[in-house]
Every structure is written in C-alpha cells, then in structure tokens.
Amino acid sequence: MRRKLQECVPPWISPFHVCKSFAAGLGAAAVYSLLRFLLAYFQVYSQLWERDWRTGNMVLREDAQMTPFGELLFPALLGFAVAAAVMLCLAAFYYGSFSRGSHSLYLMRRLPDRWELARRCLCLPFAGFLLAAAAAALFSLAFFALYRLVTPPQCLPFY
C-alpha cells in the first residue's frame, strides 16, 4: 500500500504528507460548507415566520416562500470547489517540479513505462478531485434532505 501510494507522486514527495494536507483541506471545506449552508438556510427559514401579537406564537407568513435550494447550496460548495481546483493545480505543480532544480523530466520521458510520468503527476490530484466532488455531492444530498424535511411544504418553491 505504502509503495503503491509512493508511485503516485513525484519520487521525492511523501504521499502521506499530501494525503494529510488534503484531508485537512477537505475537512475545512466540509466545516465551511456546513456552517455556510446552515447559517444561510436558518436565516431564510426564520424569515418565513412572523409573530402573532395576539397569541404570541410564531406563525407562517401568508406570502412565505423559501429561497430556491440552488441559491443556498452553491455558495456553500465553494470550499469543495477550491479543494478540487487546488488538486488540478497540484497536477500542474507536480509536472513542473520535474523541471525545477534539474531536468528530471528527461529521465521521466525516457522510462520504459510510458505511464510513469502521468501516474506520478495525475493519480493523487485526480483522486483528490474525485473525493472533493464526491464530498460535495454527499453534502448536497444531505442539505437537500434537510431543505425538504425542515421547510414547511407550502413554502417550497416547487410545492
């Protein structure tokens, strides 16, 4: 496993260091996403209600309409988009690193294994990109479930 992972990055880079950094970045993106969505959602949600001054209870406003899901979701996914973009930049950085300090790109391009260079530049960044995309999809699903279950049905835009 360790050897396989090492073959997915330039030879002088520790894959565990990259994975740790990526996990931290993904974690930060998840926290940001969660906070951003929940804050935005409950801010809009609270505007659906008004106080009935006779009874003192909160009641649904007559013209209450929830903000469309997409408008709440997309800003919340910014963290994952940044994580995915960083992964794409990482691939370019890895490729460029074979020309920094020496021209080891010459060696990489004349190896008998034609995929060696591509594997070392693309594997981990691509896996990171996919993970970020998968995490964004998972969070989107969870947010959608929350949106559907908590929002009063008559306030949903597509009700």
């Binding site: 330039p10 030879p11 002088w12 021209h103 080891s104 010459y106 060696l107 008998p112």
Partner: peptide, 28 residues
C-alpha cells in the same frame, strides 16, 4: 518504449532528482 532502455543519457543540465539521495536514485 520497448527498446528505449537501450539508450541512456547524461547531461550537464542534469536529469536526476535533486531532492533524492544517491541510494534512492539507485532504487528508482
């Protein structure tokens, strides 16, 4: 790719990995 290992290249521009040791190069 089948026969490229029959060619080797040493250049004053250097084609080794500057951050690796000689031992790591040998393994590579």
């Amino acid at each position: 790719r089948k026969n490229i290992a029959l060619l080797s290249f040493g250049t004053s521009e250097h084609s080794f990995f500057p951050n690796l040791s000689a031992q790591a190069h040998r393994d590579f």
